[in-house]
Design a protein around this nucleic acid. Structure first.
Length: 481
DNA sequence: TACTTCGGCGCC
DNA sequence: AAAGGGCGCCGAAGTA
């Protein structure tokens, strides 16, 4: 059964101030308008995509059938063989063929998640993962959207404010908040099915930049982090880049010539996990795996792991988290980095984490910047994150409320059609765009900061727009005054 | 047949 | 001391 926040006896959605109540009240109404507007699916495109994907799956399966591993699978399971059963695959790989699982699941079974399987370096498995991913998007997006879309071509996802523990929103039937984008092949495949409401409107996305990090600053007020988000040069460019700085420190490279992919690895496998409460051991393994997976190279073309060796880091170190980190291993190195990160670089942030946790233990709850009570049984990492995640979303929600009000007041034909935590989706008629975009930008970057004076670093947004007749997949960044 | 749990995977 | 925050949906397999 789906778990609702309200299932926990003493935990409930609890606006603790009039402003928080108003935010929920007007938020629900604005989201109802979005739900009513709905989002347009191009039925021709989605039908084409269905056939393309099915054909691709058939092709891959055809190839798989010729493989030795497939035949072993057939021998083991006979008529019970089901290519969609990961448990069967695990049995074949790890029991019959003697491969060693790279990881275990929570219940101690061998992991069959894509990354762990791919690490085995088996051709069959690579193909298997490919078709499994395609089946996932076929059922979750193509097939489900087809069912959810009415004859008018409009789909109406539900947005709720009362089901999430952190006071974020939730979206269902279908969930519009997990539409593929990272995979360069699958993202456009699915997003190309989503369009503006008519051929004279732009499909538009308004996206807060780094809103969670910025809202976290309002909580901890760490001067170093605030400087990263505030200090600009004469051209208006931010001076510092914390992801690049961390990449430089972790991989012992000069930041001036930092390759983009290495910065990305530091951002996704160290900086963000650190915010969410991960620690050096897990992060070291993830960083190391990324280096292997993406074959990272320094600007001189040296393999990043070889480069680390030249700097005295011989190996990853023991994956057993109970083993004390040994000098000369990457895990030991990460332990040093982490100590510096929380002990020196973001020491104020670190002290806030301790303070908020102690406050929670003392009072049995905390209150958020937007006036909500977080009350109930939580783990430490939940307490540290919950006061940031909710208010960050509330920046988006308050913007939605005001933008929706302006649309009504100005009798515009623009329709808000969705919302993804820190971004707003709209279908904007051609002749309204030059009014709409600056109006929305002003609300999201100016009015919000003037009203919520706890915001202590500048807010920025990115505006992306698809050409007329284009789709969500065609969105391009544009400059808005 | 209907439901639950698990592992997996899509997003912020 | 513990060790990645928040969601929804899918299929397989087990259970009622």
């Amino acid at each position: 059964m789906r778990r609702f926040a309200s299932d926990w006896g003493d935990l409930m959605i609890r606006p603790a101030t009039p402003a928080a109540y108003q935010l929920l009240h007007h938020g629900v109404l604005a989201l109802a308008a979005i739900e009513h507007n709905g989002i347009r699916i191009n039925l021709n495109t989605i039908n084409k995509r269905r056939e393309d994907i099915k054909e691709k799956i058939r092709d891959i399966e055809e190839r798989l059938r010729g493989s030795k591993i497939f035949k072993e699978w057939q021998r083991s399971f006979g008529s019970k063989m089901n290519i969609n059963s990961r448990a069967q695959l695990a049995h074949v790989l790890f029991n019959k063929l003697g491969y060693e699982a790279a990881n275990k699941t929570a219940k101690g079974l061998p992991s069959t998640e894509a990354e762990d399987l791919e690490r085995l370096g088996i051709g069959f498995v690579t193909g298997y993962i490919k078709q499994a991913k395609l089946k996932k998007v076929l059922s979750t997006y193509i097939e489900d959207w087809t069912v959810e879309t009415g004859a008018d071509g409009i789909m109406h996802p539900s947005f709720n404010l009362h089901l999430t523990e952190t006071y974020r929103s939730q979206c269902e039937d279908p969930n519009l908040q997990n539409v593929p984008i990272r995979d360069a092949y699958i993202g456009p495949l699915i997003r190309s099915c989503v369009e503006a409401h008519d051929e004279n409107s732009y499909f538009t996305e308004l996206d807060f930049s780094g809103v969670e990090v910025k809202v976290s600053c309002a909580n901890h007020k760490d001067p170093t982090m605030m400087r990263y988000l505030t200090e600009r040069n004469a051209q208006g460019q931010l001076v510092g880049d914390m992801h690049k700085d961390m990449a430089a420190q972790i991989f012992m490279l000069p930041k001036e010539t930092m390759p983009k992919e290495i910065r990305q690895t530091a951002k996704n496998k160290f900086v963000f996990p650190s915010f969410y409460g991960s620690y050096y051991h897990t992060m070291a393994i993830d960083l190391w795996n990324d280096c292997v997976k993406y074959k990272h190279k320094t600007t001189d073309g040296v393999d990043l792991i070889e480069h680390l060796k030249s700097k005295g880091i011989r190996e990853l170190g023991s994956k057993d988290k109970d083993v004390k980190p040994v000098k000369g291993t990457f895990i030991y190195h990460l332990q040093q980095i982490e100590q510096d990160y929380w002990g020196r670089r973001f020491a104020t942030y670190d002290r806030w984490k301790k303070r908020i946790w102690e406050q929670y233990l003392r009072d049995g709850g905390i209150s958020t910047l937007t006036g909500f009570c977080i009350h109930g049984v939580f783990r430490r990492n939940q307490i540290i994150n919950t006061g940031t995640q909710g208010p960050a979303f509330h920046c988006n929600l308050q913007s939605i409320i005001w933008i929706q009000e302006e649309i009504r007041k100005r009798k515009m034909k623009t329709k808000l059609v969705g919302q993804v935590h820190d971004s707003i989706l709209a279908s904007v008629p051609k002749n309204e765009f030059d009014d709409f975009a600056p109006m929305a930008k002003k609300i999201m970057t100016k009015r919000l900061c003037e009203t919520w004076t706890w915001i202590n670093v500048p807010m920025e947004i990115e505006v992306d727009r698809a050409p007329l007749g284009g789709s969500w997949a065609d969105k391009k960044k544009i400059e808005v005054a």
